Amino acid sequence: MIELAKKHLKKVLRVCGANRNCQYYPCHFDGQVCLWCYCPFYPCGDEELGEMIKRKDGTEIWSCMNCIWVHKPEVACEILREILELTKDKEIDEAIGILNNRELMMKIKENVEKKVGKNNNL
C-alpha cells in the first residue's frame, strides 16, 4: 500500500472506528464506533435514548450520555448509508444545507430504527 493510501486509511479508521487515541475514549463503551461522536440527531428527544437534565444554573439540556445506539457498528453504518444516499450527487455545502433540516434528520433516524432496531443495550 502506498504511503498516501496508508495515511488516508488511518484518517478513515480514526473517524469511523474505535478512536482509542481520543482522550475521551471510550465515552460510551469499549469498542464503540466513533463515527457519530457528535450525533446528527441531537437533540433527538427520544426518552429511550436520552433525557432532559438540569444544569448547575437550573436550565435544562438534553443529555444523551447513556445513549450507545449511534455507536453500534450496524447503526453507525446505516446512518451513514442513509445520509450518503441523500447527498451522493451534492457538493459538501449543499449536502450540509439539506441535512440541516430537523424533519429530514428525524426521518433518517426513523428509517435506521426500522432497518436495524433501536436497542440501546450492549
Score class of each variant (00 low, 15 high):
residue 3 E to R: 13
residue 46 D to Y: 02
residue 4 L to E: 14
residue 97 G to R: 02
residue 53 I to R: 10
residue 89 D to H: 15
residue 89 D to K: 15
residue 6 K to C: 06
residue 23 Q to S: 13
residue 115 K to W: 03
residue 43 P to L: 04
residue 58 G to N: 06
residue 114 K to L: 12
residue 101 N to W: 00
residue 55 R to S: 05
residue 3 E to L: 11
residue 71 H to G: 10
residue 101 N to G: 02
residue 27 C to E: 05
residue 45 G to A: 04
residue 118 K to P: 00
residue 110 E to C: 11
residue 50 G to Y: 04
residue 122 L to S: 06
residue 71 H to P: 01
residue 59 T to L: 02
residue 42 Y to R: 04
residue 88 K to E: 15
residue 58 G to H: 06
residue 67 C to S: 11
residue 6 K to V: 10
residue 74 E to K: 15
residue 107 K to F: 09
residue 96 I to Y: 13
residue 102 R to W: 00
residue 39 C to W: 03
residue 21 N to G: 03
residue 72 K to G: 11
residue 102 R to Q: 06
residue 47 E to V: 06
residue 11 K to H: 03
residue 89 D to C: 13
residue 65 M to Q: 12
residue 20 R to L: 08
residue 115 K to M: 08
residue 39 C to M: 07
residue 120 N to F: 01
residue 43 P to R: 05
residue 109 K to H: 12
residue 109 K to S: 05
residue 39 C to Q: 06
residue 45 G to K: 00
residue 73 P to V: 05
residue 20 R to C: 08
residue 75 V to H: 05
residue 102 R to S: 01
residue 64 C to V: 04
residue 23 Q to P: 10
residue 31 G to I: 04
residue 22 C to N: 14
residue 94 E to R: 12
residue 102 R to A: 00
residue 10 K to M: 02
residue 46 D to G: 04
residue 16 C to E: 12
residue 45 G to L: 02
residue 89 D to F: 15
residue 36 W to M: 13
residue 111 N to M: 08
residue 5 A to D: 12
residue 66 N to M: 04
residue 80 L to K: 05
residue 7 K to P: 00
residue 102 R to M: 00
residue 83 I to M: 10
residue 98 I to Y: 11
residue 24 Y to W: 15
residue 114 K to C: 04
residue 100 N to G: 09
residue 121 N to T: 12
residue 80 L to I: 05
residue 47 E to D: 06
residue 103 E to P: 00
residue 121 N to A: 07
residue 69 W to H: 02
residue 72 K to V: 08
residue 34 C to K: 09
residue 50 G to A: 14
residue 45 G to M: 00
residue 37 C to E: 11
